[in-house]
Design a protein around this nucleic acid. Structure first.
Lengths: 103, 103
DNA sequence: AATTTATTTCGATATTTGTCGAAATATAGA
DNA sequence: TCTATATTTCGACAAATATCGAAATAAATT
């Protein structure tokens, strides 16, 4: 939970996740989208990996990163329970597909 | 969005929110739940207020804090859109009441 | 008016964090 | 094997953050 919120508490890292939602990318391809150095991107990717928000796989010379949104269920659940007892009912943004059955 | 994630990126502040979900509390009552100094709690409350996660109202000598979960809709929406295009369907934790209609 | 109580603001400090350039590691291709 | 490319690790540094005690502010009580 801590690692998760820590990972999300950075604009660059959130943007990386947004990038990865469309397709898997190599570290270099990710870095190309930002005006900061590659070692810094590497560090951000490391934090995302620690939070299990991304996975990485080496393919030859490249390392490809993929997003893993399943760990965000925990965050969602925490937010839900917060709103629960205060009579705030969260809205479901239209066009999204939320599974209501058990996992 | 930035202030929101920043506010959530701290165990103490998340615990304060959890406390406030049951009932409004004065700054002192909140501080009594933690082993850290009152100035520190005051600072945490300030960050929560900046993120609009809490509101405060002065009543005589005391300042009462209330949780405001509505701003978390933005976070929820962001998380939803992340999962959307990766075929991850978020589960709804059982026992929770999520309004599926428009607000 | 003086004192007590509740809370915040201030100034200082130690830790964490984001960033960089240089060096290290590893794979690919000549 | 040598060189080029991709990525990470390392060491350093500046900025941000969590924390504290002391002082300031404000309301309540005597």
């Amino acid at each position: 939970m801590n690692a998760l919120f820590k990972a999300l508490n950075d604009e660059v890292r959130r943007d990386i996740l947004t990038l990865l939602k469309s397709s898997d990318l190599s570290a270099g391809e990710i870095a190309d989208h930002f005006a900061i150095g590659r070692p810094t991107i590497s560090h951000h990717l490391d934090l995302l990996r620690q939070a299990e928000l991304v996975t990485s796989e080496k393919k030859g010379q490249y390392i490809y990163y993929s997003i893993n949104t399943s760990v965000l269920d925990e965050v969602l659940k925490w937010i839900y329970t917060l709103g629960e007892e205060k009579d705030h009912k969260y809205i479901r943004p239209k066009g999204l597909h939320i599974k209501t059955t058990k996992k």
